[in-house]
Structures are given as structure tokens and as C-alpha cells.
Nucleic acid binder design. Sequence first.
DNA 1: CGCTCCGTTGAAACGGTTCAACCCACGTGG
DNA 2: CCACGTGGGTTGAACCGTTTCAACGGAGCG
Lengths: 228, 228
Amino acid sequence: VRVIDHIASIPLFETLSGKQRESLSGIAVHRSYTKGQAIFSEGDRGEGFYIVVSGRVKVFKLSSEGREQILHIFGPGEPFGEVSAFSGLDFPAYADAYDDSSVLYFPRDAFLRVIKNDPSLSLAMLAVLSKRLRVLAALVDNLSLKEVPGRLATYFLQLSARENDAAEVELDMSKGNIASLLGTVPETLSRILNRMSKRGILRSEGQRIIILDRPGLEEIAREGGKLS
Amino acid sequence: VRVIDHIASIPLFETLSGKQRESLSGIAVHRSYTKGQAIFSEGDRGEGFYIVVSGRVKVFKLSSEGREQILHIFGPGEPFGEVSAFSGLDFPAYADAYDDSSVLYFPRDAFLRVIKNDPSLSLAMLAVLSKRLRVLAALVDNLSLKEVPGRLATYFLQLSARENDAAEVELDMSKGNIASLLGTVPETLSRILNRMSKRGILRSEGQRIIILDRPGLEEIAREGGKLS
DNA sequence: CGCTCCGTTGAAACGGTTCAACCCACGTGG
DNA sequence: CCACGTGGGTTGAACCGTTTCAACGGAGCG
């Protein structure tokens, strides 16, 4: 598959003309990573940004003792690492390949040249960054103002919302990673899942979660987590 | 003072020509708020964004029980509320006047028209959003991966860094609000300040903090907060 | 003067983490 | 093909940092 074909399928670039896409494909570099491999590290110089082509990319922070807080999981078509490209500063977090993945890399200067000639691309980029800020604000809200049951309930409701409010959702990553996304540890997650099951709020069968009492779950999400 | 004069002093607009500033001043609205007054609320439709002219603006989240988590304090020249302007979605947080303040308000559509004609303005805006993402990522890191002493140490070091690493820093807001910024409560903040004083790391005299043992403070910030 | 707001202090309660042990499914190599 | 190791998940018990509630002190202000 050629770079130009990848670019055609990226939402961020959908407003571009064929000519503009060509100039982009001229500057993009295709890179592949195996599961778990580092893409960049906190403190690295950010000389460009990335877009996921296939697989998923995990962006996270690390504590001094090695505990990890996931900031975001990016899937195909989503850009990441733009923060340092536009601010000119170092990467503020780590990025690993969550699955075997491939990405397009856009060197900073070349991309800035393209964007200068295309207002619609910069508007699209502004929209992307704005949505990301919203996601991070929601994360702060969860971490600071809700307890773990509330965060977990919120997470399940989000997963369900993505699939037309289906009562049955498939976890898209391991429970250990979900714990890391929710700012806790696997043990705590396991216990809370257990409590929710006992209360008849949901059933947990491996990677499959069946929501039995949606209003109950919504209340836990709203109230911040008092498992009454 | 006229709107055009305010605009001239805003860093975000410094690359603009006089003509472009005029067109901006044509769309901007000057608004004043008294201390504590609401500017917008979470869930409000975002029809535009703001830039602080004078005073400060507090942007924060609220828990169901009324506890507040400050996301950011904005001072003169800084834009806020752009997230919903560019994403087209509702405001994701609350904004209050922290002091008696005045702001410029830019309606969404008019501003988008201006930005479309000026690549440098959109690049400046991308840089602003990127820096903001970095701040929020750091906040997540603090909240999730560090304990309160570590967050406080980090905060003091930031304050000090802003003034050429001065050993003596003036708190720019009430201790209660600092607690809210650090994701804790005033009581905890008070106790930790006390412990740090006892350990000879700093002296706390009202709004003035004197750093006595900078390496010690740096270690607390790094290690996440074990007050050994 | 008395009110309110902010900060401080103490004691008790709580939610979450840590550490350790254990289980199971899975894949690998002998 | 079975033994073994590994990684993910679960469970129990002790521990710990932080919150909560209540009380109190001081500064500022009408």
C-alpha cells in the first residue's frame, strides 16, 4: 500500500484536494512498530507528529515508581504527538505501540509549510486539539472528583454509547490497562467489578460486560462512585 | 480604552497586520465581570471564545457534591473557552471571574472567517492549544501519579521558576484555591505545609513562601511525595 | 462589635494501595 | 504431548494517605 492511499483515508485530511494530498504524501514517512515498542518518550525532542494507520497507540505518563497513567489510546486515522510539533517543545508523555501498528510520520517543518497554505487543514487541526482538550478535561474530572466506581461506570457507559447504547459491550483492552486508564490498579478494578456484579448492576464474563441495570450504573457515574 | 488598543497588546495577535487587527476589533465585544461572577457554565453552548483583558479567570470542574477542581487560571492576554469554539461542542467546564475582570469576546463564526485568511493566526492558535494540552497532561500526571506533597512541591517550584528561581515566592491565590488546583482540600494543604516547615524545607508566612531547601523540595516533587 | 471568610488543628473514618498468594489459560520447548 | 513458565486476573489482610467533621483562631469589614 502506498502512502498516498493511507492519506486518502484519514479524516483530518478529507477536505484536502488531490494536489494537497500529494504534497503531504511527499513529506510523510511510513513506520511500523511491534506490540509494546516505544514510539517516543517523554522529554524527546518533538520534530514532527504522527497519524495511526493501523493498530493502536498508547500515550501515557509514568510515575517515579513505574506506575503508568494512560492519557489516551489512539486508533487508525487519529493523529498524536502534535502537541510538541506545534508548541516546539519536548514530548510531554510516552507513546508505545499497543498492538502491532503502523503510523505515518510528518516532519514538523514540512507539515507547517503545507498547513500555511491551507486554512481548512488548520481548522481541522484546531478541532482535533480542542476535542483532545475536552477528553483530558474529562480525565481530570474523573481522577480528581470521582472515585473509582464512578470512573468505571462512566467508562462502561462510554463504551456502550459507542455501540448505540448496547447492553453488552466488549472490553477493547486488558483489565490491567483499563485500570491504568482509570488511574487505579488491577486489584481495585477487580474488586469493584465484583461488587457491581453482586449488586446486580452488571455481569462480567471475561472481556464481555453485560449491563443489567443501566439507571443504576448512570447514578454511580453521576454521583461519583458511592456504591451505596 | 478602545477595543483596538486591547487587541494590540494580545500576544496571540502580535503577528497580525494593522488591517487584520481592525477587522478583529470589529467583531470583538468587551465585557466586564465582578469577582466571582460566572462567565460561562459547563454544558453551555459555546458560540465564541474569550481573551482576558484584565483580572484573572478561573476555569474549573465541579463534582456532584460541589467540590471544585481548577483546570486553569488565566491572566491578561490569555485566551480561554476556545475548546468549544473550534470543536463546535458545549463548554466542558465552568469559568468564573477570579478577580474583577474584563474580557474580549469573539463570536465563533466571525473569528473563523478571520482565521481562514491568516495562516499565522491559526498557527499561533495551534501553539496555544498545544501548550494547554501540555498543562492538562501535567495536571493528570500530578493528580494520578503523585501524592499531595509532590504536587505542592511541583507547584512551588513552578512559581519559583517564573521568577528566576527566586527563593521567596508570593502565592498568587488563596490557599483554599491552591488546594483546589492541586486536587485536594484546604485542611490537607495546611497540614503538609506544616510538615514541610517542620522538616526545614520551607518557611510559610501567610502568602509568602520561602524555600529553604531547594534540593529537598525538588526531590519531593520528583519522587511523588514521600515526605520521608 | 459582630459577622464572615480563611486557615488551622485534632480525631475518626474511609477508600485505595500494597504485598502476597493463588488460579487459570496459553504457548513453548523438551 | 506433557511439563513448565508466563502474563492476566482474582482474593485476602494489613497498611497508609487523605478526607471528613467539628471546633477554634484570627483578619478584615460593614
